[in-house]
Design a protein around this nucleic acid. Structure first.
Lengths: 233, 233
DNA sequence: GCAAAAGTGTTGAGGCTACACCCATGG
DNA sequence: CCATGGGTGTAGCCTCAACACTTTTGC
């Protein structure tokens, strides 16, 4: 074994859709380096943790997920270990992407936690003028967003942005927000309801809005989407 | 910064196609743990290296790439850090996938190197009865092969398995070997030659085989493949 | 000539886009 | 009644799988 050792951290790209925009959860750094700068939430891997355990623990701390099973998605994005990425020394950061439904009560820090409050920020401005985030988090964020955009095409990941029960329009708004595009509602509806295992109808309808009530769906067992949803080129 | 530190290694899944089979480059471990077992080639990250630099250095040592620019592909696969994956202590391994054309002179160790000789092994038996490899390399291998299989669908990665100039049949044999399937040669030819930026024709033809001589191509500038190549389901 | 491999033409099935049209609700 | 959003029908376009057919070589 060699003498050059690394601290290993996990940083999270937590994504959701709020008000028709793709948003990421950022925290403000309280200590140097980059004190006061916005950053991706993260922390060091503990002695007996595997990477995904660290990611899940961090996510639970952020969302205050005590018991409430968050219906989201969590996957490894990649590792970042440029020699000068952290002035304190050699730190390898493993990025994870988390997808959550829009939980209205999320940005409140759990009472008694030492974690700083997180805040949802639209990703658009962050990606266009990437000057703000600490460390190399601008790049991790960009890679995470690109991963999510790509996976909408050929997987059922979009349902992870939605609450347990949702309408076809809710799902379409996810695609439109993440891809920053518009999709024909009628063709979209036909496509996702006929894709095997994507959506399972419930008995309920949504009333209260204008217009005809919409069918409510739960996500089905499929994870891959065949044929894929096509993004415009 | 915390006191629990990791050694960080890079392990390579080096893939090629030989005799119509997808093969991986394995080495034999010379020292404990797992002395004598086959393993993925790899090594520790040096103090001033970024991860991809370590991967490229390891690959160059394996291929004896002194000057000869290898035309292949190298990309990060993911990180593996289960607490008990290495009996010596806490080791995080970053997997990389490398794609090379079939270089007939590869398994010879470069003279004077301390690296053990690598040997090409077909991946089929390794994936079907995964008992042989050291550490968690069976899983890293499986993940690397799955990455390569998936990327053939929507990228021009297959050309990285070929020498600088190749025929449409060479390219088709790559798909057939990696996917373990058969593809109609006539439809395949039309598809890849009409895909924008995938193949650039050269003036040369290949003679010497039976049948009509084939057009030689170089790889074009495209990296994405639209529309994708479809795998049977 | 014959086998083998490269490459072109054609046809039918199915997915996609675009849009006309109908359904069900709130005001 | 009418605006609004949910959902179905359908026509034209494009891609794909399948396969007949032509081209060009080695033997």
């Amino acid at each position: 074994m060699r003498g050059n050792l690394f601290a290993v951290a996990v940083d999270l790209v937590v994504l959701t859709v709020r008000r028709a925009e793709l948003c990421v959860l950022l925290v403000e750094r309280g200590a140097p380096p980059y004190a006061g700068s916005p950053a991706l939430p993260g922390g060091f891997v503990r002695p007996d943790e595997d990477l995904v355990d660290t990611a899940a623990r961090e996510l639970a701390e952020l969302t205050g997920a005590t018991g409430r099973a968050v219906t989201g998605h969590l996957e490894q994005l990649g590792s970042y270990a440029a020699p000068d990425r952290d002035p304190r020394g050699r730190v390898l950061s493993v990025g994870y992407v988390a997808i959550l439904p829009d939980l209205p009560d999320l940005p409140q820090p759990p009472a008694g936690s030492d974690a700083p409050a997180g805040a949802w920020r639209p990703v658009g401005p962050l990606l266009e003028s990437p000057a703000g985030l600490a460390f190399d988090h601008d790049r991790i964020l960009a890679d995470g967003v690109e991963r999510a955009r790509a996976k909408l095409e050929y997987s059922t990941l979009a349902a992870s942005f939605c609450p347990p029960e949702f309408t076809v329009t809710d799902l379409r708004r996810v695609y439109e927000a993440v891809w920053r595009t518009t999709i024909d509602p009628r063709n979209f509806s036909r496509k996702v309801t006929s894709a095997d295992g994507f959506l399972e109808p419930t008995a309920a309808l949504v009333t209260g809005g204008r217009g005809r009530p919409a069918q409510l769906f739960r996500r089905g067992p499929a994870t891959a989407l065949h044929p894929p949803m096509l993004r415009e080129r």
